[in-house]
Deep mutational scan, measured.
Amino acid sequence: EEWMVEKALMVRTGLGARQIESYRQGAWIEGVHFKRVSPSGESTLRGTTWYNYPEINKFIR
């Protein structure tokens, strides 16, 4: 699984929702560690946020 939603990321990493938000707003790079995608497939600020687990795992190492 490369891309996953927040709940799956929480299960895989043990991070809480606030921790994920903090990383997203600070250290993680949009387009690398996470992306927002609307149902139409376009990038957007209001779409579902998807997280790239392999890239996040590399960051944590």
Score class of each variant (00 low, 15 high):
Glu21Gly: 05
Leu15Asn: 01
Val11Trp: 11
Val32Thr: 06
Phe34Asn: 01
Thr48Gly: 08
Ala17Gly: 06
Tyr23Pro: 00
His33Thr: 00
Gly26Pro: 00
Met10Arg: 07
Ser22Asn: 13
Trp50Arg: 04
Val37Asp: 12
Thr49Ser: 04
Tyr23Val: 02
Ser43Gly: 12
Gly31Thr: 03
Val37Cys: 12
Leu45Asn: 13
Leu15Ala: 00
Arg61Cys: 11
Gly41Asp: 10
Gly26Thr: 14
Glu1Pro: 09
Thr44Met: 11
Gln19Asn: 04
Met4Tyr: 04
Val5His: 11
Glu2Cys: 11
Lys35Cys: 08
Glu30Trp: 04
Ser43Trp: 04
His33Phe: 03
Arg61Phe: 10
Ile56Phe: 02
Ala27Ile: 11
Arg61Pro: 04
Gly41Ser: 10
Met4Val: 13
Lys35Pro: 01
Gln19Arg: 05
Trp3Gly: 01
Glu42Asp: 13
Glu1Ile: 08
Pro39Gln: 11
Lys35Asn: 04
Thr44Ser: 13
Gly31Leu: 04
Leu15Asp: 00
Trp50Thr: 04
Thr13Lys: 01
Thr49Tyr: 15
Arg12Glu: 05
Leu9Phe: 04
Pro54Ala: 11
Lys7Asn: 09
Ala17Leu: 10
Gly14Tyr: 03
Met4Phe: 05
Tyr23Asp: 02
Phe34Ala: 01
Lys58Gly: 05
Val37Lys: 06
Ile56Cys: 03
Arg36Phe: 15
Gln19Tyr: 04
Arg24Trp: 03
Pro54Trp: 09
Gly14Leu: 04
Glu55Asn: 06
Lys58Tyr: 06
Glu2His: 08
Ile60Cys: 06
Arg61Gly: 09
Leu45Ala: 13
Asn57Gly: 06
Phe34Pro: 01
Arg46Asp: 15
Gly47Ser: 12
Val32Lys: 07
Arg24Ala: 06
Thr49Trp: 15
Gly16Asn: 15
Val11Pro: 03
Ala8Trp: 10
Gly16Glu: 12
Thr44Gln: 12
Ala8Cys: 12
Ile56Met: 00
Glu42Ile: 08
Thr13Gln: 02
Phe59Lys: 03
Gly16Pro: 06
Arg46Met: 14
Tyr53Ala: 04
Gly31Gln: 04
Thr48Ala: 09
Thr13Cys: 05
Gln25His: 10
Glu30Met: 05
Ile29Gly: 03
Trp28Cys: 02
Ile29Pro: 00
Gly41Leu: 08
Tyr53Ser: 02
Met10Ile: 09
Ser38His: 12
Arg61Thr: 13
Asn52Phe: 06
Arg18Ser: 13
Glu42Val: 09
Val5Lys: 12
Arg46Ala: 15
Arg18Gly: 12
Arg61Asp: 08
Lys58Asp: 08
Phe34Leu: 02
Val5Gln: 15
Leu45Val: 12
Phe34Val: 03
Glu6His: 06
Glu42Cys: 08
Trp3His: 01
Ser40Gln: 11
Thr44Pro: 12
Ser22Ile: 15
His33Tyr: 02
His33Cys: 02
Ala27Glu: 10
Trp3Phe: 02
Trp28Ser: 00
Leu9Met: 04
Ser38Arg: 09
Gln25Ile: 11
Ile60Gln: 04
His33Asp: 02
Ala27Gly: 09
Asn52Cys: 05
Glu30Ala: 05
Met10Ala: 06
Ser40Arg: 07
Gln19Gly: 03
Gly47Ile: 12
Glu2Gly: 08
Phe59Gly: 03
Gly16Met: 10
Pro39Asn: 12
Gly26Phe: 13
Ser43Gln: 10
Ser38Tyr: 14
Met10Tyr: 04
Ser40Tyr: 10
Val32His: 05
Arg46Ser: 15
Arg36Trp: 15
Glu1Lys: 07
Ala8Lys: 07
Ser22Leu: 14
Ser22Val: 13
Ser38Asp: 13
Tyr23Asn: 03
Glu6Tyr: 07
Leu9Asp: 00
Phe59Glu: 03
Glu55His: 04
Trp28Glu: 00
Ile29Val: 11
Glu30Phe: 05
Arg12Ala: 14
Met4Cys: 07
Met10Lys: 05
Gly47Met: 11
Glu2Lys: 07
Tyr23Ile: 02
Glu21Ile: 07
Glu2Ser: 07
Gly47Trp: 13
Gln25Glu: 14
Gly47Lys: 08
Leu45Arg: 07
Ala8Ser: 08
Glu30Ser: 05
Trp3Pro: 00
Ala27Pro: 11
Lys58Glu: 09
Gly14Ile: 02
Tyr51His: 00
Thr49Gly: 03
Trp28Ile: 00
Gly26Ala: 09
Val32Arg: 06
Ala27Leu: 09
Ile20Ser: 00
Lys35Ala: 06
Trp3Asp: 00
Ile29Ser: 05
Glu1Val: 09
Leu9Trp: 02
Val11Leu: 14
Leu45Pro: 10
Gly16Lys: 13
Val5Pro: 13
Tyr51Gly: 01
Lys7Ile: 09
Phe59Leu: 06
Glu55Ala: 10
Ile60Leu: 15
Glu2Leu: 08
Met4Ala: 02
Gln25Val: 10
Ala17Ser: 11
Ile56Glu: 00
Tyr53Gln: 03
Val37Pro: 06
Trp50Met: 13
Ser43Asp: 13
Leu15Met: 07
Val11Met: 14
Gln25Ala: 10
Ala27Asp: 09
Ile29Thr: 10
Phe59Ser: 04
Phe59His: 05
Pro39Tyr: 10
Leu9Thr: 02
Ile29Met: 06
Ala8Pro: 04
Phe59Tyr: 07
Ile20Val: 06
Glu42Ala: 09
